[in-house]
């Protein structure tokens, strides 16, 4: 039996035929839709490397069955930059050296965008660290990550104010 799943991925509607209900969103993106930017670390919801935005909320793609999310809107690391213009969180990660090997970085960046959207951390470094605790970095770039998230929070708030003005 096969299943049809329709998803909007990085603003593009995609209909996928699944021959197996076991496919996670992570495997769908990486293995079937040629979007390998979302990383498979532990595949058990412990490391955060697979973080994507699902209907605007950060989630672990490894623990979500694609078939159960029929109709969802998905944003991955590939959908952030507009042409050569990086997303403010991407730019802040580069400015603050917020990575070393880079494997966890797509998940860190997607998680940071989710965190900033949730609006619970603000300019409090301790709340940022707590809010990012679902993303492990084995290179230990946490200091740069926290600085990058704080700067991106400020830049995105300023941009929002400019747009409102």
């Amino acid at each position: 039996m096969s299943y049809l799943v329709t998803l909007t991925i990085n603003r593009v509607p995609r209909t996928v035929e699944l021959d197996d209900p076991r496919v996670t969103l992570l495997d769908l993106l990486r293995e079937r839709l040629d979007l390998p930017g979302t990383k498979k670390g532990c595949d058990r919801g412990q490391c955060g490397a697979c973080t994507i935005l699902l209907d605007g909320r950060r989630v672990n793609a490894c623990l979500a069955l694609a078939i159960s999310h029929d109709g969802a809107d998905i944003l991955t690391i590939e959908g952030l930059a507009e042409g050569q213009a990086l997303h403010p969180v991407q730019a802040a990660f580069i400015a603050h050296d917020a990575f070393q090997c880079g494997f966890c970085t797509p998940g860190q960046i997607m998680s940071a965008i989710g965190l900033i959207g949730e609006g619970q951390a603000g300019d409090d470094a301790e709340r940022v660290r707590e809010g990012m605790s679902g993303n492990l970095c084995r290179c230990g770039a946490y200091r740069g990550i926290t600085e990058a998230v704080l700067e991106a929070t400020r830049i995105m708030a300023d941009t929002t104010q400019e747009k409102a003005a």
Binding site: G48, L63, A64, S111, G114, G131
Partner: peptide, 9 residues
């Protein structure tokens, strides 16, 4: 409990 990602799910 858990992480922000897991609490969202």
């Amino acid at each position: 409990g858990a992480s922000a990602q897991l609490r969202n799910m």
